[in-house]
Simulated assay, not measured.
Amino acid sequence: MSEPEDQQLQPPESFGRLLERLIYLKKHDDGRPYTVSEVADEIGISKSQLYNLLKGANEPKLRLAQELATYFGVELEYFGTSERAREIQEQYALLERLSQQGVRDIAYRASALSPEVLSSVLDFIEFQASRGGENHTSG
């Protein structure tokens, strides 16, 4: 089965899971993570209402979904079920996986390297990957 067919067989992620991903991934301009309390306060809902959304106990009305999308700087369609929505969600899911693996930190640091040094780093990564992903540490 091709990858797009596999993705169509997967049920859409819940609103709560999509919102949880945004709270985890998005950061303030100064790099601080968002908290459920501050999101609830700034959106104008109670913490319990936001927790209920995250748990899937409630679904938001359109206006609240719009406010959350605006607050986090994403398209409203991020919370949808269309093909475009799935594309947006997949991008954020990839970002979440990369973030959990520390790849975002590596990419950020690598962006300051010269092309020559970056090439050496990529060569090293390729070398390590060719070793079969074994965990080799010194000491």
Rank of each mutant, 00 (worst) to 15 (best):
R131H: 05
F124E: 08
R104D: 05
Y78V: 12
R109V: 10
L68G: 04
A93W: 06
S2R: 02
A85H: 05
P11R: 07
K55G: 01
F15Y: 13
S37H: 07
L25E: 07
E134C: 01
Y51F: 09
L62V: 08
E13P: 07
E75S: 15
F124A: 15
G31R: 13
S130R: 11
L25K: 09
K47H: 09
G73P: 06
S138W: 10
S46A: 07
F124Q: 12
T70S: 11
E42R: 15
Q10L: 15
V117F: 04
A85M: 09
H28G: 05
D29P: 10
R84T: 15
G44M: 13
A112P: 01
P33H: 07
D41L: 06
I23V: 15
E59F: 07
Q89V: 11
R63S: 11
E67N: 11
M1Q: 07
L122Q: 11
R32G: 11
L76Y: 15
L22G: 06
P11F: 00
A93S: 10
F15W: 03
A85D: 10
E42F: 06
S37G: 00
Y71A: 02
I88F: 05
Y24D: 05
E83P: 10
R104N: 09
L62N: 11
A93R: 14
L122S: 13
I23T: 01
Q128M: 14
N52V: 00
P33T: 08
E83A: 14
E3Q: 10
S2C: 12
F72A: 07
A65F: 02
S46G: 08
A112W: 11
L68Q: 03
S2I: 03
E90S: 10
K61M: 09
A107V: 15
S138D: 09
A85F: 06
D123S: 14
V121G: 08
Q89Y: 08
I23N: 06
P11C: 03
G80M: 08
F15T: 09
E38R: 10
P11H: 02
L25S: 01
L22R: 02
L9E: 09
A40I: 03
Q7K: 12
K47L: 06
E75A: 13
V121P: 02
L50G: 01
I106M: 12
P11N: 01
E75V: 05
H136L: 08
S99D: 14
Y92S: 01
V39M: 06
I106S: 04
I45G: 04
E96Y: 14
